[in-house]
């Protein structure tokens, strides 16, 4: 009898403990099947901080691929993203995340990434410049539809695409216009920022 009471007491404690856990922040809803964040990849940013691709979830993201020793086209990619940033209001800007991922797994480091961030005066509170391993570069390029090829001199030829991901990582818009403002992209960004909270989790 006493034994059973002890068992019940232990059980009650255990259940109580799990109930307490259940009232802490609810787990996020499962990712949509077409979310880019289905991809397991570990990125390292310009501060040397490592994080999972899926950790980008929660804010809309403008994402593009580049590499730091790229002299011609990559600055234009950054320009295209900066153009969107500048067109947004302060409150809108706060909710956006601008992410760059390097093709150059061998040579791009937090230091080279930080140099670009400094050169271009990119606000660290919303710009994250990253590098990842070569296999993840290939997979991320595949989900974003970016094509690239290493050249014989250590650089890369690549398509230039800026992709807009919603708060759950689904691609909702893409732009290949690097030389001029892309009004459709900006509209898409505003639409995603304005989406109701329930659609965002």
């Amino acid at each position: 009898m006493i034994f059973m009471t002890r068992v019940f007491a232990a059980l009650a404690l255990f259940l109580g403990a799990t109930t307490v856990q259940a009232t802490s922040p609810e787990p996020a809803a499962p990712l949509p099947g077409d979310s880019v964040y289905q991809l397991d990849a570990v990125l390292t940013d310009q501060r040397g901080h490592e994080f999972k691709l899926a950790d980008l979830r929660g804010r809309p993201v403008l994402i593009a691929m580049f590499y730091t020793s790229c002299k011609y086209v990559c600055p234009l990619i950054v320009d295209a993203m900066v153009r969107v940033e500048r067109a947004l209001g302060d409150a809108e800007k706060k909710d956006m995340h601008f992410v760059l991922v390097s093709f150059d797994a061998d040579h791009d480091t937090p230091q080279t990434l930080a140099e670009i961030a400094t050169q271009r005066h990119l606000d660290a509170s919303r710009w994250t410049l990253t590098r990842t391993d070569a296999a993840s570069v290939r997979k991320l390029a595949a989900v974003l539809g970016v094509q690239y090829r290493a050249t014989t001199d250590g650089g890369f030829n690549h398509s230039s695409i800026v992709s807009l991901l919603d708060q759950r990582g689904r691609i909702v818009a893409r732009s290949t216009r690097m030389n001029e403002a892309d009004a459709e992209l900006l509209q898409a960004v505003r639409r995603v920022l304005a989406a109701p909270v329930s659609a965002q989790r």
């Binding site: 011609y72 030829n157 398509s159 230039s160 690097m178």
Partner: peptide, 16 residues
């Protein structure tokens, strides 16, 4: 497979 037809020539980097 995705980059077979991408130029391997580094001089093509210049013009977007």
């Amino acid at each position: 497979y995705a980059s077979l037809m991408v130029s391997g020539d580094n001089r093509d980097q210049g013009d977007p």
